[in-house]
Design a protein around this nucleic acid. Sequence first.
DNA 1: CAGTGGTCTAGACCACTAG
DNA 2: TAGTGGTCTAGACCACTGA
Lengths: 250, 250
Amino acid sequence: MNAATPSFSPLYQQIKALLVQGLQSGEWQPGQAIPSETELASRYRVSQGTVRKAIDEMAADNLLVRRQGKGTFVATHAEQRTQYRFLRLVPDTATRSPLQRRLLDCKRQRAPADVARALELRAGEAAVQVRRLLLAPDESAAGGPAQPVVLDDLWLPGLPFKGLTLERMENWRGPLYRLFEAEFSVHMVRAEEKLRAVAAAADDAALLGVAPGTPLLSVERLSFTYGDKPVELRRGLYLTQAHHYRNTLM
Amino acid sequence: MNAATPSFSPLYQQIKALLVQGLQSGEWQPGQAIPSETELASRYRVSQGTVRKAIDEMAADNLLVRRQGKGTFVATHAEQRTQYRFLRLVPDTATRSPLQRRLLDCKRQRAPADVARALELRAGEAAVQVRRLLLAPDESAAGGPAQPVVLDDLWLPGLPFKGLTLERMENWRGPLYRLFEAEFSVHMVRAEEKLRAVAAAADDAALLGVAPGTPLLSVERLSFTYGDKPVELRRGLYLTQAHHYRNTLM
DNA sequence: CAGTGGTCTAGACCACTAG
DNA sequence: TAGTGGTCTAGACCACTGA
């Protein structure tokens, strides 16, 4: 055991590192079950309790999901429960209804300097830019047109996302992060967001259907996959007239 | 053991409930050590491992802080590390320097309906309202005047905060939440925030030293103490010209 | 029913802190 | 050195799932 992972750390941390490696290498895919605790214990020659502690931490990190009686599964963005795990915008009233997606653009180009820095790309390396709107279905009885609430600007590293096209996204049912996971083997694990209040520029205002100068919530998100590797930079403008960004502090 | 807590649940959950009760009742004060794991194990007639699991969860909830070799301590807002545990506003550049506080007002009055509802007070019950500014020290070499960055409006239930005055807050060194904890036995455990982008009203703009209509980040925070009891409603307006609200999604 | 994760125990030993 | 939390083990039994 120690031969495989020479640096000193508690056994369960070493097990955790091995398991994360398994996720990173794609040995176990999102949604699939990993081996049982007893199986892993005998494989790594440690007690079940040690494996358990490693898995406990990974479950707390949202890398794995435990299901009593069934097994332990690799976390995925496919489940209802985590459908919008990273989207903190919720309607002020009523329950959260699914948002419509309207893709505006998808093009490959050289990454601007700031994007390259955030995604740890070499200057001028290829990147994919995606622009899209999220729209809230009209809640009134009349059933009017859907109201735009989010204007997103995504930047993805070109290499892992080779073959990402507008059509592929348009034909996809379900969360974008599920597409990334299923088709490009990129699973988003965590993200850092920076929020600001800004005034809507003319073009953004037009897309969101509001007056220029309307206060918007600017959300810059940097998403990471296994091993704290940044794989998405997203700039969003949220309309907070009838929605708000919800956060829990602990 | 089961006699004391008749409802069925895992043993360690029952222990956890008992420990939370101890915090709630003030048996152990913030900053103080609770009894050792072995002591608690023998007191509650369970194994040390069971106590350990209860404490593990409470540490994860930020109710307790473990210090190897020293003991387990009741979490407090006094520590440097958690000085601004609930304030997510950080400067865009440089490190986070301590903010100045300028108290504007503190008065006792009947709680408005919305405040009463949030704080679970009876209609018209007494409440304390506090208004204050947070100012960032000028970073430039010149060392100009401090720049207001946060305008806060706090509402506290009148009963537990009997005796809270402007002087008492002005003479207090350190975080407000530490004052609440030390003088009023109210420890904030967690909070829910709702964020919006708004345009600055004339009076708010004047206090923050910006033009009316400037986009501001509106942060409505409801804070809870032990047992999910709401004890503070806070409405903040954040200037996000040189600062941003930082959030981590997991 | 067998197989999975979940709880609980008892005991050994390690790592850190402070007198 | 004594006392604390941290790790690791081995084994028993419970609770849940699905064939």
